[in-house]
Every structure is written in C-alpha cells, then in structure tokens.
Design a protein around this nucleic acid. Structure first.
Lengths: 354, 354
DNA sequence: TTGTAAGCGTTATCAC
DNA sequence: GTGATAACGCTTACAA
C-alpha cells in the first residue's frame, strides 16, 4: 500500500505538503497540489484509517449495538432494522459496525471496550431496558450515542433518543376496536424486561380508560415470547364463558399476533372482523404481516424515519452541533419530548384481521 | 482513556513490560503480571484499536460489501443475510463492517479504498456478476476475500466462494413438477446481470432436458424485476390457447412468485396444485413465503450454513491456514467444487402452491 | 508556500 | 525479566 511518504518522494516534496494538498488546505501551490493529487491517484493511494484515527481524527464509523435477547422472535425486526440502518449510514457516508451483544460477557464491559478502543465515533443503542445501565455508562465515558427506545428515567438522564410511541399507538388500536364495537379487549404483553413492552401495555390501559372500559385481569396475558407461551395464555382466555370472553385480542407484536391467528381456529374461533370472529392486531408491521390469513391489522413502525433521525442526531452529536436540521421542523407524527429526544408515531394499518 | 503509559507509570514499570504482560507473553514475572493486569482493570484500560492495527496487527474486523442493486426486491434477502452474517461474525469474535456499495461511485474505487485504508482484515463479497471485476481486483490487491456466489470464470480465477446451487435446485423443481404431471412449465427469469440468475435459468433448461421436455420460448419471461414486468410477461403467457398455456410457473425468486400468485386470479386462474390450477414456485424461502395464499412451494437458501462456511473460509484465509475444519468433512448438501470453493444445495420446500 | 519535527498508542527489536 | 527505542502512517504546530 502506498503511503504519503511514497507520494512525497515521487513528487519531490515533503510529506507535510502531501498531507495538506490531499486534505484540501488552501496554502498549497495549485501546481503542487495538482501534481500530488495526480501521483496519489496513480499510486492508488488511500490514507491509512488507523494512522488517521490514531492521530485524533474521526473514524467515520458508528456502531450499532443491539442486545441479543433470548426471544429470537425479535430477530426479524432486528434484521429489518439493521438493513435500513445500513442504508441510512451509507447515505451519511458512515461505515456501520454491527456489534452484537450477547450474554456471554458483562454488558458493561462490552460497551466500555467499544468506547475504549476508539474504533467508532458514536454508538446507536437498541433494546433499551426500563433501567438501562448502558446509558449512564456511555454518558460517563463521554461517548456520543443515541438510543432507539427510551428508559423510564429519560427525563432525568436527558440523553438523546428516538422512540416509537407504543403507548399512543396501542391506545389508538384500543380506540379503533372500541369504535368498531368491541368491549372485551384482551392484551398479550411481551416480557417487561424491555422498555417498549411496558410502554405498549400502558397504551392498552390508557386506551381502555379513554374508552370507559375497565381492565379485566382475565384478559391480560403476560410475559409472552413464543408460540408455547401464547398457547398457555390463550386457551383459558378463549374458554371463558361467552360474556367474559374477549372479542378482540391485541398482541404486543406481530409475532405474537401470528401465533394467535394460527391458534384461534384450533380453539374453535375464527380471526377477523366479522360478526362472530375474533379481532386480532399486532405491532411492527413486519414484511409477512400483510400476507397472513387474514391479513394482519397492525401498527407500523416507521423504521426508515427512525433510522434517519437516529443518524441525524448522532452525526450532530459527533460534530458537536445543535439540533440537526431535520428536527428543526419536525414533520407530522414527530414530537420532540425534550432536546434531542424524539417520539415517532406508529401508523395504524387496518387490514382484514380487525 | 487510559493508555499503557498510564499503567506503566502506576505500576512503576516500562510500557514494554505492560504490553508484554497484557498480551500474555511468558517472559514476565508472575507478580508483575498480576499487578499490571489488576491496574489495567482498575483503569478500565482497553488497547487502542488504531494504534494496534497501525502496528501491523489484525483489526478483527471484516467487511460485508454487497452491491446495492437497482431492483430493491433483493432487499429482503439482503436484510435477512446481513442479520445472519452479523450473528455468525459475532460467534467468530469478529466485528462486521457493513459497507453498502451504490452506483454513485466507481465500483473499483470503493473496493480499493476498503482494501487500502486497512480497516478490515477481509471482505465478504456478494451479488457476484457473471464477469466480476472485483475478484481480480481484490486478488491483485492481496486482500483476503470470499465471495457469496460465483462468476462464470470461477475455475480459472480460482478464488474462494460459497454458492447455493441454483442450477441443481431449479432442475429439482422441474423434476418435481414433471413428476406431478406438468408438461408445460414456464420460467420467469431475473435479469442476467447477476450470476445466480443465469445459473437458475440453466437449471430450468437442464431440468427440462432431463424430463424430456423441450423449451418453449413462449414460456420464458426474461429480465423480470418487479410487479410491472411480471404483469407484462404473464398476461400473454396466460392468454395462450389452452394447449400451449403453462400449467406450472417457476419464478426465479420468491418476490416474482408473490407477484404471480397475486396476479393469476386477475387473469382468471387460481394458483395451486389442484386439477385446474396453475402451480407456482419460488426461490429463497423468504420469511413471508409460508404465509402466502397458497403457501409458496420454494427452494430454501441455506443462509445460516452459507454464512458459517463463508466466515470459516475467510478466517482461515486471514490466518493463512488451510481448509477450515468445517470443510474437511463436508456435510450433506455440501460439495467442494474446488479448493475453498463450496456449493450448497437449496432445499425444496413443498407447500400448497405447487 | 513549503519543510522539520513532534506526537498519537501500540508492538517489536534489541540490549541489559 | 525488564527497559530503551524505533517504527507503524498520519496530522499539525512551528519554522523558514
């Protein structure tokens, strides 16, 4: 690999001049610059990234560090998200370092390492927990980061995040179901170990309240993360006497909804919005949602805008800038709940299942 | 951030000793070592990655550099693949640098840069073209790489790759359809700008030949990449007189198959394996395939094993080792077509559509 | 406008 | 066992 040294020798100038010419400084003779640029091209020169960042420059790389949670059902969403994020980073001219974080090692250590080795300029956190130790950690490490999701103490900790408003979203679903005549609406909740699960459940409760309905503990399934757990919870629910039985089921995500769709017929029910059917809804709008039978009514996560805003925020942070341009005039469905704290609205996609 | 210098000072030794102690060299006094390790831990020390790689060490990072092709229909597969690759890299203790390659810049330049900046130890190529300029380029650059897919001249160029045997796969589908009574089998081909598209089409022709059928140009759709192009090709095909009309349609990928499934009813046909239905098959087995109506019969890409082998090969290459262990005893469905050249069999997943 | 030299944090090569 | 010191490739004061 060619270095500035090679270029300097060939051009008969010092490495300083080469460096300046290649970095677009003004105090270089135009002729000298042209010659240097030409030689660099001939030699297929590219600045060594390590040398550059060692010397204090940016790495132009950001890390995406989601948690590898036990329930692989979150995987499709992770894949979806990673893909979109890669595309968005690409547009920002940033490299994306995908760093999966498993349970093999101390969580804290991994992030310390990520920050300590200086390989990235910033980090995108995901799978935020209700109390997330990574947030104060990265703050104390002074490593720029943006969270996808928010912990309970987001106001106090005052860190930048982008979150999808699960609470408002699910409340909207409850309102929709209520309008369409449903009075006994069940909710299937994911484990509350991730912040968004609780948030969505809160939306369910808020929705009930707004609709003037009272919460029925028989209509709540908790800690659901796979087909099995759904079965365990769904059976007793559907075996309730007719006047107690749910006429609609809100699942915390599309996967849970998928299981419900598949399972209902086994319990003698048919999913859908018809007279004697059971309405079913999901959350995420994963690619398969529209192909289910019946097609799933669900809340669509605005993945693309989420990634865009995440990156805008992070880039601004890295450059020590203020609010990124994209947030000065927030579009519809975008709320700034604090400085650099953004809430995006999921979109209710009504299909055949509810 | 703490450096070996800080540790040295605190321990009252030289940085040399610190480096040796931390890198597990044998010639360090056990007491000294313990003290140093302890201090390093206290100081939350992590070696600076840039300094390390500047010294000629490995970066422990590999790049995944797929092409960003025009037809976004390939996107779901890319997302799927990236996710799995991230998981696999994680297991190999490698960081994954996702570098999307668009058309904004000279293809060659991007790869030169990737190799020249020394940020990665190796590259995983994807979306291989029939004649792929990246392969000789990386060879001449002496940058370790493995291709997912193979160009036409893979024997001559003799580079390491993992490919899914599209030819054998599609031939298998033709055989299956032939067995189930079909005699007029159509094929919908993707643009031949990517190597696998041609490979799959070759499988179609081979399948016909083996079955003793002759290829009918009316039953071939070419250059298909979206709903529109499928419509354009499908309509005339289905308007052929009954004794010319296809009774089965093989689509080059699941997306094309999806469009066929959706479009057939509009032309007055029903997809499926019934008496008066039109059989439809796909390729990939994307997550939505099983949820289509009717569920799609398709060839499943062995994404997980593909990623595993890709990484095994690349790691071996980086370490200058020979065949990786996983290839010494190739499992079923794994063929070594050359040294470090691996062909994996797709699995025929029979569902309701054919 | 250009050059000299220091320094970024490591590891490697010698001495001791 | 341990310590100076050079070297990796680059940027950036500071000089000239």
């Amino acid at each position: 690999m060619a270095t500035i040294f090679d270029i300097a020798k060939k051009a008969g100038v010092s490495i300083t001049t080469v460096s300046r010419a290649l970095n677009g400084y003004s105090d270089v003779n135009e002729n000298t610059r042209q010659m240097i640029v030409q030689i660099a091209e001939d030699l297929n020169y590219y600045p060594n990234a390590a040398a550059r960042s060692l010397q204090g420059k940016k790495t132009n790389t950001i890390a995406f560090a989601p948690l590898l949670n036990d329930h692989q059902e979150a995987e499709p969403f992770f894949k979806e998200f990673t893909g979109v994020l890669a595309l968005a980073s690409f547009r920002h001219d940033l490299s994306l370092l995908v760093t999966l974080v498993g349970k093999n090692r101390n969580l804290e250590e991994i992030y310390r390492e990520l920050a300590g080795t200086g390989r990235v300029d910033g980090i995108i956190l995901a799978d935020i927990k209700p109390q997330d130790e990574r947030i104060p950690l990265l703050q104390s490490l002074k490593m720029p980061f943006v969270a996808f999701g928010r912990s309970l103490d987001y106001e106090r900790l005052n860190y930048p995040f982008v979150d999808v408003d699960g609470k408002a979203g699910v409340a909207k679903v409850v309102a929709y179901l209520h309008e369409t005549g449903h009075r006994r609406i069940a909710y299937l909740a994911e484990p509350f170990t991730l912040a968004y699960a609780r948030d969505r459940y809160d939306g369910y409760r808020q929705g009930l309240e707004t609709a003037g309905l009272t919460e029925d503990p028989h209509l709540l399934g908790q800690n659901l993360q796979n087909e099995e757990s759904v079965a365990t919870v769904l059976r007793p629910m559907m075996e309730l006497p007719e006047d107690k039985r749910p006429t609609a089921i809100i699942a915390g995500n599309d996967y849970l909804a998928l299981h419900v769709l598949e399972m209902l017929p086994k319990f003698g029910f048919s999913p859908g919005k018809g007279e004697n059917q059971v309405a079913v809804t999901g959350f995420d709008d994963l690619p398969f949602a529209s192909f289910l039978q019946p097609a799933l009514t669900t809340l669509r996560q605005p993945i693309t805008s989420t990634c865009t805003v995440l990156l805008d925020l992070l880039v601004a942070l890295i450059k020590n800038q203020d609010e990124p341009a994209s947030l000065l005039t927030p579009g519809p469905g975008t709320t700034l709940v604090g400085p650099k704290q953004v809430l995006l609205q999921p979109e209710l996609i009504v299909r055949a299942s509810a």
